[in-house]
Design a binder for these strands. Structure first.
Length: 884
RNA sequence: GGGCGUAUAGCUCAGCGGGAGAGCGCUCGCUUCACACGCGAGAGGUCGUUGGUUCAAUCCCAGCUACGCCCACCA
């Protein structure tokens, strides 16, 4: 017996445990089934579940559950990412509370702390994922710093190094002065800052009272200037090119060079050049062989290469001092307010400093070439397609990828240095030692590179490292490449592009055939959710309040194929919670009326139109689901199910069944019960990928012995023989009739309980037959007692309406408001007349007749015919009304 | 500076070269024996703007306006 109300909390826990314990989430490596693979984006170990995760994992779980039911060997590979900087920051913060700095512990002891932290607080997200109903192959869970995955990282590094696709270089990097590490271009975010533009006068050497004016947003960097650039053809400065200026405050003589970089239109046309602290200036410096004066230490404090009074100053303090000193010297020409973009570290949120250091780089340009080609040729497709443009744009302009980080938590770079600095890049220390010994001809002491790799380096290998690469495993052969990667657009560059590069390079094939890009989840007003705005919705709270199924269904219903952002409104979730209740009660209705699934029931053999109609509609719904899932149209799938279950199944079919079950109708109860059981069973299957819990619970009540859980059930494959146009047309007519009667009753304020007689005028034999056959259904649903046929003039006080070619006449017991009735009919007539006019005009247009497809012309003709008929009948009804 | 997206009912959004849709909200009526998280009936839109293509445009194309996002080294 089903409880009166659905209790999602108990049900969710019960079924999830049963599913997981049964091992049914597991991929079947040895089966004959065609594999279906989704690589779960490894969540940060530091993370906890937010609604963005809920969206992406729900979509993946829907796809996995659907394909599992379709008979595919589904592998959903779960895992977590070590999230280098993020995790290190979390642990450092914890240590700071105890007054400890990681330096105090030393590298090994610190890393031990991180592993300890990971053991007890890491991976929260995987536990939370279970509350979402996610069904990945948990025993295959991987971590990017597992032994196996670390081995993959070392092999990739060594191979790329030997192929000269990884190299070490000294160049400007984005230096984070707070975290004391280099970061990649992608980890830099631009922030608009209200600052100033300072115009300084630099004295020309040997020419008293002659100056060149340069402007800067960063006065402190002038201490590192090693040139002033002007455009080579700038007429104002022709005589100055080749001369020197005396750098104020420093006294260094620096050249004035001609370089295209200087834009004559901007400012004075002259620009100061600080090659060690600006990416553009670095290039100018290279072109002119300029000196690089590095003026900062790792904290972005001034170092000893600046005049003594500035040494040790923090960069913004130095800025003030430099400006003050230049002002005192009368060298400030102007100060303007100036808004500009300043690069910041995405983790530390401090302004990054271009800084000259040795770092490791991946030759991304070379790796990108085949990855671009793979998308161009369609071996990997983006859905929606437009995201491939974003991918191309970035990949075609890709810069060397800085992969070394000056932190401790991560994969330490497999490079060892000999006493003279010779670098040995090898798979492990023993190999490096052997190489070094051979190189030096004796045993030497090696020191490993201190740096670790960018977290995304290991994530890039995820599609094959998790399957056992570089070992030649069965999994690798079977599940690579994956079918679809599901993710948000925000990590196309960070992750998708890099998986493409690494996958193609090391596996010889793309890592996934489709990339489905969904939107970001925002609040109901479209605002980004953030703690500071206080508009964050916790998915687990939603699950507690509305049920997991309601959340999943909402996310599916909001996932439109165009991949727009998802605005999550609580009212929507509430509505879909109501939907689960509706389904629950429908199932209770079935149970109360002796509806059961019957293994012997063959839907092809159903006789009653009402049953054949529902079987047909269910078949069409199943087709619709297949199409929706194939095209990643989750909203269509959700809306189709919602509308069918609520409106077709509950509003009409269950209502039609009431008189049948009550014995008022001729239709056999047995066939209707069996059909209803069959339909309910199909619906539970179709709904299961999106709403796994309530469907499993209901299935446990309606499944037959030996059928097993819905989780592993087979997806409905319904043949064309079940589609029944005749029954559909017949029942649609009955539905229309009932709707018309209800509308008239409502508009004429007929008391809800009152029974009315119904007369059909001008009914064809077919219509008469239908009306008689379904009399009891009409009686019950439209509250009609007594159906007669009479083509004569309706009695006074009758109300009329149209259903197809037939006029309904409802004699009302009390005197009707004739004016009101006239208005009602006139309104309808006006609408029809308007329609008629449009169609007539169209059909009178020779161009239309000549050029439009015949089918369209025919359709318009038949519509005009119908409109004519309706207009005629309505006019007749109106004149009868006036006459009476 | 480049690129992308969006503009349809009060709100949130689907849709589509030939008859304007959903959910929520709103109005009216219902203790109808599965469900008030419900049932029934309604009201409500010149589909942002201007032009073009077409027999036909809410839909395709171009411009404009507004909003949002991404990328970018301009002093």
């Amino acid at each position: 017996m089903l409880d009166k109300t659905y209790r999602p909390g108990d049900v969710e826990a019960k079924h999830y445990t049963a599913w997981e314990d049964s091992g049914a989430f597991a991929a079947q490596v040895d089966s004959n089934a065609v594999p279906y693979t989704i690589m779960m984006p490894p969540a940060n170990v530091t993370g906890s579940l937010h609604v963005g995760h809920a969206l992406t994992f729900t979509i993946q779980d829907i796809l996995i559950r659907y394909h599992r039911m379709k008979g595919r060997d589904a592998l959903w590979q779960p895992g977590t990412d070590h999230a280098g900087i993020a995790t290190q920051m979390v642990v450092e913060r914890g240590l700071a509370e105890e007054g400890i700095h990681r330096r105090d512990l030393g590298r090994d002891a610190f890393l031990e702390k991180v592993w300890e932290w990971k053991a007890h607080s890491g991976g929260t997200i995987c536990r939370q994922l279970r509350r979402l109903g996610a069904s990945p192959d948990w025993p295959r869970e991987r971590f990017t710093m597992d032994e196996g995955l670390s081995a993959a990282v070392r092999k990739v590094f060594v191979d790329l190094y030997k192929q000269k696709l990884i190299y070490r270089d000294k160049r400007l990097v984005n230096w984070d002065p707070k975290l004391h590490t280099a970061i990649s271009d992608l980890e830099v975010i631009q922030k608009e800052i209200n600052g100033h533009l300072w115009h300084f006068r630099y004295p020309i050497e040997g020419e008293a009272d002659r100056y060149i004016v340069v402007a800067t947003t960063r006065p402190e960097t002038m201490l590192g200037d090693t040139a002033v650039a002007v455009h080579p053809e700038d007429s104002r400065y022709q005589d100055l090119i080749g001369k020197n200026v005396v750098l104020p405050l420093v006294g260094r003589k620096i050249p004035i060079v001609g370089d295209d970089y200087a834009d004559p239109e901007t400012g004075s046309g002259a620009v100061k050049i600080t090659p060690a602290h600006d990416f553009n200036d670095f290039e100018v410096g290279r072109r002119h062989g300029l000196e690089m004066v590095n003026i900062f230490d790792e904290n972005a404090h001034l170092n000893d290469d600046v005049p003594e009074k500035y040494r040790g100053l923090e960069r913004y303090a130095a800025r003030k001092q430099v400006v003050a000193d230049l002002e005192a010297a009368g060298l400030v020409a102007a100060i303007e307010d100036h808004t500009h973009m300043v690069p910041h570290g995405d983790r530390s949120q401090v302004a990054i400093e271009p800084w000259l250091t040795d770092q490791w780089y991946v030759d991304a340009e070379t790796l990108a070439r085949p990855a671009i080609e793979a998308v161009e040729t369609g071996r990997t497709k983006f859905v929606p397609e437009r995201w491939s443009n974003t991918y191309f744009e970035w990949m075609r302009n890709i810069q060397p990828w800085c992969i070394s980080r000056q932190i401790w938590w991560g994969h330490q770079i497999p490079a060892w240095y000999g006493p003279d600095g010779t670098c040995f890049v090898e798979y492990d220390e023993a190999a490096a030692q052997a190489a070094a010994d051979a190189h030096y001809g004796k045993t030497v002491e090696l020191t490993q590179d201190n740096d670790v790799l960018d977290t995304w380096f290991s994530s890039a290998l995820w599609p094959f490292s998790t399957l056992g690469w570089p070992e030649d495993t069965k999994e690798l052969a079977r599940y690579y490449p994956g079918d679809v990667l599901v993710t948000g657009f925000d990590i196309i560059f960070f992750w998708v592009a890099r998986m493409m590069m690494m996958g193609i390079h090391f596996m010889g094939e793309v890592p996934f055939k489709t990339v489905y890009i969904h939107g970001l989840v925002r609040d109901a007003q479209g605002q980004k959710m953030s703690k500071s705005k206080g508009n964050v919705m916790d998915p687990l709270e939603i699950v507690d309040r509305y049920s997991c199924d309601a959340l999943r269904f909402t996310l599916a219903a909001l996932s439109i194929p165009a991949g727009q952002d998802v605005k999550l409104a609580e009212s929507r979730i509430e509505g879909y919670r109501n939907f689960t209740t509706k389904l629950w009660n429908a199932a209770r209705f079935c149970e109360m009326n002796g509806v059961a699934r019957d293994a012997a029931f063959d839907p092809h053999g159903a006789k009653e139109p009402v049953n054949r109609w529902m079987i047909s509609a269910t078949t069409l719904l199943a087709r619709e689901m297949d199409q929706a899932f194939a095209e990643y149209r989750f909203n269509d799938a959700a809306n189709g199910l919602y509308h069918f279950i609520w409106h077709s199944f509950c509003d009409w079919y269950l209502e039609f069944a009431k008189p049948i079950f009550a014995g008022e109708a001729e239709a056999p109860k047995a066939e209707t019960r069996a059909t209803m059981g069959w339909v309910l069973g199909q619906l539970l299957h179709l709904l299961a990928p999106i709403m796994p819990f309530i469907t499993e619970e209901l299935w446990s009540q309606f499944s037959l012995p030996g059928e097993g859980p819905l989780l592993t059930a087979s997806w409905p494959e319904l043949d064309d023989g079940l589609i029944d146009r005749e029954a559909t047309e017949e029942m649609s007519w009955v539905v229309d009739l009932i709707s018309q009667v209800r509308a008239v009753r409502s508009e004429m304020n007929v008391p809800a309980g009152a029974q009315l007689p119904l007369i059909l005028k001008d009914a064809s034999p077919v219509v008469r037959d239908r009306a008689q056959k379904h009399q009891s259904l009409i009686a019950r649903l439209a509250r009609v007692d007594g159906l007669t046929f009479d083509d004569g003039k309706p009695a006074a006080g009758s109300v009329q309406a149209l259903v197809g070619e037939t006029t309904l006449v409802l004699p009302l017991a009390e005197a009707i408001d004739v004016d009101k009735e006239r208005q009602r009919l006139q309104k309808e007539l006006d609408a029809v007349a308007k329609d008629k006019e449009k169609l007539t005009k169209k059909l009178a247009n020779e161009q239309f007749l000549a050029k439009a497809p015949p089918a369209v012309v025919e359709e318009q003709r038949s519509r005009l015919g119908e409109a004519d008929q309706r207009a005629e009948k309505l006019s007749a009804a109106l004149s009868r009304l006036t006459a009476a």
